[in-house]
Simulated assay, not measured.
Amino acid sequence: MQRVGDRPGDALAVVPLNDERLVGALLEHFGASTDEEAARLLRREREIRTPSKELIADLVERAPSGELAAVVAQGSRSDLDSWLWGRDVLDLLRDAGPTATPGLAELLPLLRPLQARQYSISSSPLAHPDRVHLTVASVRYGSRDRRYEGVASTYLADRTDGEGTTVGVYVQPNASFGVPADDDAPMVMIGPGTGIAPFRGFLHERAARGASGRNWLFFGDRHRETDFVYEDELSELRTRGVLTELDLAFSRDQAEKVYVQTRMRERSRELYGWLEDGAHVYVCGDASRMAKDVEAALLGVVAEQRGRGDDDAAEYLADLRRAKRYVRDVY
């Protein structure tokens, strides 16, 4: 029996703690390294990686001639997002300078509550009834002067392996994103990078259920040598006949970049045939570019194979959505 509220397609929310080094750097910035209550709040309760709207507004008011204020004055959300990309709370405070930043007591209410991070469950409770698997890529970037790390990804990777460590988690159901109820229905899964996570669970679920429906996975990343997660598992699933088709796209392994949408177009006829056979299509991963490119490729496949123009292809895809046969879990 499946655990209540735990199914392939659901997410596991992880309640992280902030990195002690960033907490320490913030306290040092304010000359408050011995303030235990502020340290506790910054470590456990406040979002210090992503600046809040309230903090941005406060800094703009304090420094109306500063660089941040100039970006905000342009009124473009995309420009502001681009300027903020990679910057954390400490960066904004340092950029504003000592005469245009709030004190520590003023800062704390301007920070958002520390949020749980959600990760797609990458296991099936039918196959692994005593545990939940996640597929997490540690986010790390920056220079020697400033190193930046993902809040939850490096918390899980670096700071939860001690004996007796307890991590706060809870299941976040996703009722619209799950294995077809019909075990005979074909399933097309498009999940580059960590977007493969739910589809690993889907495949294990179908194997455990003895489902006869065909399964097709489009997976990609930068380099096959370093980024082909679950290679052995996928090979085994193919050998067992659970994974019917596997198309791979490693974008940096050749001069011309190849993505999952490239593979979709290359197999246009077969992919449309699966759609006509009642396939459910799932997309998981990056919302900013991948999901849009995949949808454009899907529309192109339908338009090419049906030969009735773009409007007909758009309506075909809309019909799939209405039938809950085209669903996405993107972020």
Results as ranks from 00 to 15, higher is better:
residue 190 I to R: 15
residue 196 I to K: 05
residue 149 E to V: 04
residue 221 D to P: 14
residue 191 G to A: 14
residue 159 R to Q: 09
residue 138 S to N: 08
residue 172 Q to S: 07
residue 158 D to P: 01
residue 192 P to K: 15
residue 176 S to W: 13
residue 185 A to Q: 15
residue 164 G to Y: 06
residue 202 F to D: 01
residue 136 V to M: 08
residue 211 A to W: 08
residue 160 T to E: 09
residue 135 T to I: 05
residue 132 V to T: 15
residue 212 S to A: 15
residue 188 V to L: 14
residue 182 D to W: 03
residue 158 D to N: 10
residue 210 G to Q: 12
residue 216 W to A: 02
residue 130 D to S: 14
residue 160 T to M: 06
residue 155 Y to Q: 10
residue 125 P to D: 10
residue 143 S to G: 04
residue 136 V to H: 07
residue 124 S to V: 03
residue 126 L to G: 14
residue 136 V to T: 08
residue 220 G to V: 10
residue 192 P to Y: 12
residue 153 S to K: 09
residue 152 A to Q: 10
residue 125 P to H: 05
residue 180 P to E: 12
residue 141 Y to I: 00
residue 179 V to N: 06
residue 167 V to F: 04
residue 124 S to C: 09
residue 136 V to Y: 08
residue 219 F to S: 01
residue 199 F to W: 14
residue 181 A to D: 14
residue 173 P to L: 00
residue 173 P to D: 06
residue 161 D to A: 03
residue 187 M to Y: 00
residue 136 V to P: 02
residue 145 D to C: 01
residue 145 D to T: 09
residue 186 P to T: 04
residue 125 P to K: 01
residue 208 A to N: 08
residue 167 V to L: 04
residue 188 V to N: 15
residue 220 G to E: 13
residue 137 A to L: 06
residue 159 R to V: 01
residue 164 G to D: 07
residue 168 G to H: 05
residue 199 F to G: 00
residue 131 R to E: 12
residue 210 G to L: 11
residue 205 E to T: 05
residue 202 F to I: 00
residue 164 G to T: 01
residue 192 P to I: 14
residue 160 T to L: 03
residue 141 Y to D: 10
residue 201 G to K: 04
residue 146 R to Y: 13
residue 215 N to M: 13
residue 199 F to C: 01
residue 147 R to P: 00
residue 142 G to H: 09
residue 203 L to V: 01
residue 133 H to G: 03
residue 206 R to N: 08
residue 195 G to C: 05
residue 147 R to V: 02
residue 149 E to Q: 09
residue 204 H to G: 00
residue 144 R to I: 11
residue 191 G to V: 03
residue 197 A to I: 01
residue 179 V to I: 07
residue 198 P to H: 01
residue 190 I to G: 08
residue 201 G to I: 11
residue 215 N to D: 12
residue 156 L to E: 07
residue 215 N to R: 07
